[in-house]
Design a protein around this nucleic acid. Structure first.
Lengths: 342, 342
DNA sequence: TCGGCGGCTGTTAGCGTTATCGGCAAGGGG
DNA sequence: CCCCTTGCCGATAACGCTAACAGCCGCCGA
């Protein structure tokens, strides 16, 4: 049922129908226990009957809060960001927030600031930034001060709370796993140079090799795509020294697998391969991929709660590290016996 | 620079600084040509100097428009919905809209209506629904009438504009391709029964088999996951009759590939396999997967423009079909010679 | 009996914008 | 010379809600 000749009911309509003042209706909705039970019931009945919905714009105009959170993110088509976004959204919904998104067309500081601006103009109550790039870090240092912001997977030297997966530990675990299988060293197919995740994994990998006193092969730079993994894999396949490869994500690992196979090198008998992410498909690669599972959902949840804290005034240097987990499958195996003449 | 002791500048501050009335400032922002160039310049200078940003809530309160579009979608972690969402967002941004999302935790009509409600309460100007389910169709028939809505990948008998990929044609192409390679018939690993896409593909597949007068094997139901493809693939691998399999998405095709290989059946020499979607990885499966490419981006764009039209009052039964494209790679090959005793 | 206090509800005054109407000056036609 | 138009701008009144204060009533203790 509607009042006012078909336009949606407003607070005043409810008040009239319930025989109370507008303020009382407002109270019923925002602080129910400050209204006598009987009155409250009458008001709620009126609300129901008129199918009344509070006008958020009006409420926001006076309270200054919109109940909307913003997420600015790079390519939400990628598995990681998509999962993180999804989980942020779930957490936010449960807490009564809506979520607006701003996908970044590029990785520049400028583009990131544009995304934040757009959200700010929309008057979001806070922003979560999913932009694991060096260049983004730059932007994160020049944010409008009054806006609560947290970052996902950002560096450590920025003035906003950060939720992230501990990339170094993850990479270290994968690398140690390969060494423990008897491989002399481990080659690394990395992600793009401006991705923090990529660099964190390089550090983890290199750290283990160095402290175990192993040779550190040159880093091979991919771009996260299977194609790049394939191309670099072809390179690796030519070198008979290579018995263990750690790829910085599962897609590149897939490319490596294919390149090795095409070159006649068996996985895992001749070469072991490990990935990173544990995308749902990797258990069905051939062979099933040993990889490092990142709990993106956990990261999303953490990010959301950090933002909540931040909005409540918490300090700017909170950090939330999520531990990744090594998932051993069939793409890694003991190193082949050294060639006879060695 | 700020005015009013540090709080953000409002329209009135700009007006005072520029020596004009508030209304004139408003006009400069919304209908620039109705203001003398000189005045406009003065106002714009003041805007700049005060770093003035219009308060959207106030504007919305009086105009009734928010400049925000809503997208309600199932699991945005899946490749298809994620791509569609991404592209909707791009298109919306370019047209000056923001986008809010509501991911659905379940596929029920109720859950979908909840998503729409949430967005409606947020006062979005329109909604795009990405919920390719039978159950969603039900909900689509009971939407608040005054809200502009378009659907992605929905059925045909609903009262909202629809943008979708022509699933039947896609499936038909894959099936015809396999028949043309000499296979007697084609087995089908389908998606969940309540997904429209899954059913559309079944129809396309069945249609081709029937009109070519081939036996129609029983449909095998998966759940889109590689795991389900793997399990059903094991079943298929046991049947020596099976020489061609069409899976309803690439993930399940991956599972099928693995099951066949484990059972000792070579792909494509013994069995041909085709998928659907053309996810970025499928070119690096082993063997590289023949599949049907869906242009999700195109769908996203269409959906957005349909919504724009709808908001402008266009009819409710607009339809936009996107043609999918067969991508032939190495997982399909001519049928093996019939067994000697046949 | 009265002041005071606590529980409940109403009144008033904005929040920052745009719609609407109206005014004023300059210019053009009768 | 006057009237009417046209171009530009300003005053006022909403839009729908809540913060802040004010008022009423009944009950308590003094």
């Amino acid at each position: 049922m509607r009042s006012r000749d078909g336009r949606p009911a407003v607070l005043m309509d409810v008040a009239v129908l319930a025989g109370v003042s507008a303020m009382t209706v407002s109270r019923v909705l925002n602080a129910p226990d400050r209204v006598r039970a009987e009155t409250r019931a009458r008001v709620l009945a009126a609300v129901q009957e008129l199918d009344y919905r509070p006008n958020q714009a009006a409420r926001q105009l006076v309270t200054g809060r919109s109940g909307v959170l913003g997420v600015v993110s790079i390519d939400t088509t990628l598995y990681g960001p998509a999962s993180t976004l999804y989980c942020i959204e779930q957490a936010a919904r449960n807490a009564g927030f809506n979520v607006s998104i701003a996908s970044l067309p590029s990785l520049s500081r400028r583009s990131m600031e544009e995304g934040v601006e757009r959200l700010r103009d929309q008057a979001v109550d806070g922003v979560i930034i999913v932009a694991p790039h060096e260049s983004a870090a730059d932007g994160l240092r020049h944010l409008p001060a009054e806006m609560p912001v947290v970052a996902v997977d950002a560096g450590d030297d920025i003035p906003v709370p950060v939720a992230k997966v501990d990339q170094r530990t993850g990479a270290a675990r994968a690398t140690r796993h390969l060494l423990s299988l008897g491989h002399r060293t481990v080659w690394h197919v990395a992600g793009p140079a401006d991705w923090l995740d990529a660099n964190g994994r390089i550090e983890g990998w290199r750290g283990v090799l160095e402290s175990a006193d192993r040779p550190v092969p040159e880093v091979l730079r991919g771009d996260w795509s299977s194609r790049s993994g394939y191309q670099l894999g072809q390179q690796l396949a030519r070198d008979p020294e290579v018995t263990a490869v750690f790829a910085s994500n599962d897609q590149m690992a897939l490319g490596v697998l294919r390149a090795l196979r095409e070159a006649g090198r068996r996985v895992p008998e001749d070469v072991s391969v490990a990935g990173f992410d544990d995308i749902p498909e990797s258990a069905y690669f051939w062979p099933p991929l040993t990889t490092v599972r990142q709990d993106f959902h956990e990261v999303g949840r953490h990010a959301f709660h950090l933002l909540l804290d931040r909005m409540a005034g918490a300090s700017v240097d909170a950090r939330r590290l999520v531990e990744p987990e090594l998932v051993v499958r069939e793409s890694t195996a003991p190193a082949p016996a050294p060639a006879p003449e060695a």
